[in-house]
Write a protein that binds this DNA or RNA. Structure first.
Length: 658
DNA sequence: CGACGAGTTGCGCTC
DNA sequence: AGAGCGCAACTCGTC
């Protein structure tokens, strides 16, 4: 008897496109009798990830566009959206639709790996063959890591070397010209309802959530959900998702060959907003509505036509931007869940930030809640998130982020530096959570990686380079057009004061129709005669900057990483000062000039594979007098034998021991 | 091993 | 007005 003709489910996830899909090509190569383009409404996304209305809308845009494109190729087909978790749904569909093959694109995110392992095991038990192809990145992150000696890719040099070993980036695959019919689409089984608690997205909804009220949607037609079916508040962003929009945007960028060939990220203006100065393609890459390999080769084609001196190169050019994405995927892939948090992360420095994450003891994962170790830091975080810090540049960015779901890369630097090492000294995990909620282009690997970069906990370490909320935007926007647009209360302030309005004389404030007072909690227009109010700055930036740099310096010398036993059991505190006022700004900070510095009595322990071995045999010459006068501290984990005229030289010691 | 230069995107001052 | 340097100082990669 001839083998049955393949009946295939193509499971869409972060690959909402028809062009350049190695997995879709593999599905079609099976010459199936029927093909079901499927989307499973994963409760992990609905209830357990932070997703604000703007990213929801963007996802629905992508799904609607994809569904329409599928129907164009085969009027009987569409994107079949089924409201159930893949882990429970797929096995039932295998049976109901007599499926022989399940095909999907590989996903190396921590949760996705777990989910896909589960699904693959169940498929095997059901006698369904599974085909997985990589399509999300230029290189398979697991292959990239292998080529990097099995280690997470932590620098762009490592990525470039590893990539060289892997050879050329795959050439894009054209979209299919036709698609097979779907088969019978009856659903003769009960829906498995997910548990909506805890519902991390509850705050995003303004009516009853009907996400799982009926398997094939309210009309039983497998439709893409609407925002109202999901109970979500309306989106506020003007940015639209979908493969059609993405390909059009790509064409437009590539047609401007000068822009494409001479793009240099550090020189793009973070204050440009209409139009913005970068490509705005990141969200398309996130949802897969634009293939990174297509973008790569289209840019390469343009670069080929330019002579060496006329074009930019990685890491600053457009290709370089893709390489950073590869780096973050290659860092996440081997680290799994620990990548997205400090606790247990072998490659993330431990810094005693304010508002630290709460850890679930049973699995060592962050819970999404945090400790308010200092009430002041709690207030600062609130004011940062809601754009009321009193620093117009920071507030304008945070309001743009909330409103539009996108801000320029350097704007992200500015607000991230401000929240962490260059202002509030608040955990990067708090900031990453806000970005996760509000960005339309949120990609776990990139978001987490960039927050670690900016907070100098991984990837980057020049913590003394600090963005000023006043000087930095002045470079590209002397008149403050960006601030005037997103913080309209300040729109009539003179240029001179636009980034530091608290310095404006009262007469000027009155003339501009806005008074600088309060902490941002007053209602707008509360002032007499409808005069507007903008808050006073929440702290003296220069003073905070100094405190933070000193605290960072100290934490670097202590040298703990997230997987250190003392980080895990909480006894890291013995290396830092004064809990009552927060570990970074204790009383001793005044007495010795270094915030949070504590005289560590003993204890040298290894932190994972951090290379402490290089200290083997080096005598501990320190702990005594030094040119610093009163310096008398030891690091539990010595980083380096000797610095180049740095304090490192004073932190000698024997090899750390576990 | 050590020295040295570089590192996608700092600031503020001088010339 | 734009380039260059000092600031006080990090890690990585290469020689």
């Amino acid at each position: 008897m001839a083998p049955p003709k393949p009946r295939v489910i193509y499971w869409f996830r972060t690959d909402l496109r028809l062009h350049d899909s190695p997995a879709l090509k593999a599905a079609l190569d099976l010459k199936p009798e029927c093909l079901y383009p499927l989307w499973c409404w994963d409760p992990h996304y609905v209830y357990r990830a932070r997703v604000g209305p703007n990213r929801w809308q963007y996802l629905l845009d992508c799904q609607s566009d994809l569904s329409a494109s599928i129907t164009k190729l085969n009027p009987k087909s569409k994107l079949f959206v089924v409201r159930e978790a893949p882990q429970t749904l797929l096995v039932k569909l295998f049976k109901a639709w007599r499926i022989t093959h399940l095909v999907f694109e590989k996903d190396t995110d921590a949760y996705a790996r777990e989910r896909d392992e589960d699904v693959m095991k169940k498929a095997k038990d059901s006698g369904v063959e599974v085909i997985v192809k990589m399509g999300r990145t230029l290189y398979d992150p697991d292959e990239l890591v292998k080529a990097n000696g099995g280690k997470p890719t932590m620098s762009i040099t490592q990525v470039q070397h590893a990539a060289e070993k892997l050879g050329e980036v795959a050439k894009p695959i054209p979209s299919p010209e036709s698609l097979p019919d779907p088969g019978d689409i009856t659903l003769d089984f009960e829906q498995t309802q997910p548990s909506p608690t805890p519902d991390i997205n509850e705050i995003q909804r303004d009516e009853n959530d009907k996400s799982y009220s009926k398997l094939a949607g309210p009309n039983g037609d497998f439709s893409v959900p609407t925002m109202s079916e999901l109970g979500l508040k309306p989106a506020t962003t003007q940015h639209r998702g979908g493969e059609t929009v993405a390909l059009r945007a790509l064409d437009e960028i590539i047609s401007n060959t000068t822009y494409t060939a001479t793009f240099s990220k550090p020189e793009t203006a973070p204050t440009a907003f209409s139009p913005q100065s970068t490509t705005l393609l990141s969200a398309h890459h996130h949802f897969g509505s634009l293939s990174v390999r297509l973008f790569y080769w289209r840019v390469m084609d343009v670069l080929k036509s330019y002579t060496k001196s006329d074009k930019t190169t990685p890491p600053t050019n457009l290709i370089g931007q893709l390489l950073f994405r590869e780096m973050y995927f290659g860092a996440q892939a081997p680290l799994g869940y620990s990548y997205a948090q400090t606790h247990g992360n072998s490659h993330c420095r431990f810094i005693p930030w304010h508002l630290p994450s709460e850890i679930e003891p049973s699995n060592g994962l962050i819970t999404g809640s945090y400790h308010i170790d200092a009430p002041e830091a709690g207030t600062w975080f609130h004011r940062w998130k809601w754009g009321k810090t009193g620093f117009p540049w920071i507030d304008a960015l945070m309001r743009q982020l909330r409103q539009e779901g996108w801000i320029h890369h350097l704007g992200r630097h500015a607000v991230a530096c401000f929240l962490t090492r260059g202002g509030c000294y608040i955990s990067w995990e708090r900031g990453a959570e806000v970005f996760e909620e509000w960005l339309i282009d949120h990609e776990v690997a990139c978001n987490v990686g960039n927050w670690q970069w900016l907070s100098c906990t991984a990837f980057y370490s020049q913590f003394y380079r600090c963005y000023s909320p006043i000087a930095f935007p002045k470079k590209t926007d002397k008149h403050g057009d960006f601030v005037r647009h997103f913080v309209p209360e300040l729109k009539d302030f003179p240029d001179k004061y636009i980034y530091e309005p608290w310095k404006a004389p009262i007469a000027d404030q009155k003339k501009a129709g806005c008074l600088i007072k309060g902490d941002g909690e007053e209602k707008e227009g509360e002032g007499e005669g409808g005069v507007k109010i903008y808050p006073k700055p929440m702290f003296d930036f220069s003073a905070r900057r100094e405190i933070c740099i000193q605290a960072m310096k100290n934490a670097y010398h202590i040298g703990l990483y997230g997987d250190h036993p003392k980080v895990k059991d909480g006894t890291w505190r013995e290396f830092f000062d004064d809990e009552a006022e927060g570990p970074t700004e204790g009383k001793d900070a005044q007495s010795n000039g270094v915030p949070g510095k504590k005289r560590v009595k003993s204890g040298k322990e290894a932190s994972g594979d951090k290379g402490v071995d290089q200290d083997e045999g080096e005598a501990a010459e320190l702990g005594g007098e030094s040119k610093g006068g009163d310096r008398e501290e030891k690091s539990p984990v010595k980083r380096k034998r000797k610095g180049q005229g740095t304090l490192d030289g004073y932190f000698g010691g024997k090899k750390a021991r576990k």
